[in-house]
Design a protein around this nucleic acid. Sequence first.
RNA 1: GUGGGCGUAGCUCAAUUGGCAGAGCACUGGACUGUGGCUCCGGGGGUUGUGGGUUCAAGCCCCAUCGCCCACCCCA
Length: 417
Amino acid sequence: MRPRFTALKGVADVLPPETSLWRKIENAAAGVMGAYGYDEIIPPVIEQTGLFLRSIGDSSDIVAKEMYTFTDKGGRSVSLRPEGTASIVRAYVEHNLPVRPAPQKFFYFGPMFRYERPQKGRQRQFYQLGAECFGIADPGVDAEMITMLLTLLDRIGLKGLSLELNSIGCKECRPAFKERLKGFFGPHLNELCPDCQRRHEQNPLRILDCKVERCIEIRKNAPLISETLCQDCKDHFSGLLGYLDAMGAAYVLNPHMVRGLDYYTRTVFEVKGGAGLGAQNAVAAGGRYDLLVSEFGGPDTPAIGFAMGMERLAGLLQGEAAVPGPVLFIASMGKEAAVEALRMAARLRDGGTRVELGWGGSLKSQLRRADKINAGNVVIIGEEELMSGRFKWKDMRDGSSGEGGREDIFKQFSQAK
RNA sequence: GUGGGCGUAGCUCAAUUGGCAGAGCACUGGACUGUGGCUCCGGGGGUUGUGGGUUCAAGCCCCAUCGCCCACCCCA
């Protein structure tokens, strides 16, 4: 058998039992975020292309070469969302949510699309679980959100993660830093790798992120953003660190961390996973974006958010996918018995019990199947049982057995275990 | 977009100098007429990713193409 159709490159089916792991993550996340006052928002996955050009920045790779963009039948340029924040901000402004009391807090979950070459931890369609908080500039909100994220990851069961922090300044102080960087790297331009030579023009901050050894060597004495921050940004960052210290949150300052999206200001952070993730090891990342709401036509509104990559989270929990709980299996022999089995199953299922039916074959083969699917118990319905109204059951784990009437069976197995 | 690795059954892999495409696991049926697991026996499953070339003969050699994986770029 050869499949006539296969999934597109870079997209993947999530199958059981992994789906149950996803569900677990979603539920845990919704629980924690709910406690922090976040409510779910469900934006569309498709938007005007211009929305992403304005927010992410048209020079970023995401916009420049990774968007699924096409013209719809009305001649409009539309794009599948490559990230979530832009849509949330659009909705926040469009529905005039700034008039609601600050802070307004939302979380979302869904697929994102980027036309990239797939590799470990990276797909063209991938799922993000994210949160956004609008309306408060105080660094305490940054700390609160980061704390929530760490709590969430812990609740999901992830260990060995590290939180990295940086401040990339604001409209006032970042341009100056960029100039200082350009000035510093200028004399070394021909020693830098080809990528960094390009970065020197397009986005000098990225040179700080390069993995090439020579570039790492050269940048050792490069100016630090922390020295160049304006007073307000410095205060904000030290305020954040103070709150985090008070909360006992562990973090690593990474003065070289840059984020890929243009809209970030001040606080940026990233949570990196341990082994097993490959080169793409950030499981969550985010930052403050104090200018984006006004950029979208809303009032000046400070905001901060983050997103987690579902596939990467699930990847770290591999092997912990829960197998379905014990089920009750009803074996039946003959048509009348099958009818009885269906009736009994319907009633038990109403009670929440997971029931599988045998559907013919010898009793032996039905039992074999019950064993294969890890059934906890089997109820047997044949001629004898139909005549007597008493049904035999067998515990598949210890081999014990018994019998009883319909009500006995119902009582014994109707509670989901 | 760039670089490297790999494509044989659902999965993991064999197949000698080019010579009948196989095994284990999984699935399925039976041995055991209504009682699973263990054992034994049987069965279904393949255009060897695809297309071309060389050859009496190609899973194997050559060319092309597609797909998957990993890394770069970039990013969750």
